[in-house]
Amino acid sequence: MGHAAETLGSVRTRDMRFAYTRVGQGTPILLLHGWPQTSFAWRKIMPLLCNEHDVIAPDLPGFGYSSKPDSGFDKKTVSARLREFVQSLGLSRIAIAGHDLGGHVAFAYAAQWPDEVSHLVFIESSLPAFGQEAGMDVARGGSWHFGFNMAGDISEELVRGREFLFVDHFMRREKVGLFDANAVGSSEIEHYAQALARPGALRSSFSYYRTIPIDREDNRAWGQTPLQMPVLAVGADWGYGDASSRTIRQVASNVEDVLIERCGHYPPEERPHELAAAIKQFLGRSRTAGG
């Protein structure tokens, strides 16, 4: 495998600074991380895709070293900001892979600008209006963190200074978290914790949840027109299982799926080889099939 030069960069768009990592050559793929992470989540995936692809991983608005805007955390606005980022790199048509909340953003992007998205990879993600409600229903086994994250300033107040505890809890929780608790090291979790400790980071990260009611309405409207581009749904047997596939199949008509075994909710870090192979095969096969 060749060793491609990696770019750590920043671009200024209309109202944002985007921090990103870019490596490789070929057809472009945009990698969107989940919550409460940063583009660091793709560190094991990028070297595996860069021989065939121009791989771009930004920190989402409000995360990592990207700007922490006052507002605009609904996924319609987040995806519009990301599109400005993509365009500022001189790209127009891209493949997008989104993990977790990154999947919500990827869907919003693909639904609004379907001609500009060649492929969608939907990894361990739900969607408001299309199944996330079950995960939020705590009376039936849903997770506590939706209500907590949406509660208001008290969430920031309780987590401030305890970011490691918080991220570690999610990544290593026995249900949905990493299958192998050692798959991600404490120093790597510390990386996310430090990013979350930056001014505005907790506010921004919780704002991705506080906008779910807006997202639900937007998704409902977009979902009227199923996506036509090829979609790969990636599930993890110890994460959301086949729920990602069941979700995206409600809003896309050309879906194939893969289930990664012995893997929790974080396949980009826990099973990077399996995930990268699935993505490469999907992008290669669909490109051939499409002529």
Partner: peptide, 15 residues
């Protein structure tokens, strides 16, 4: 009782 869990004011039940 179960429907009440969806009230945003009782987010603390699940927490």
């Amino acid at each position: 009782w179960e429907a009440n869990f969806a009230d945003p004011k009782v987010w603390h039940f699940a927490f």
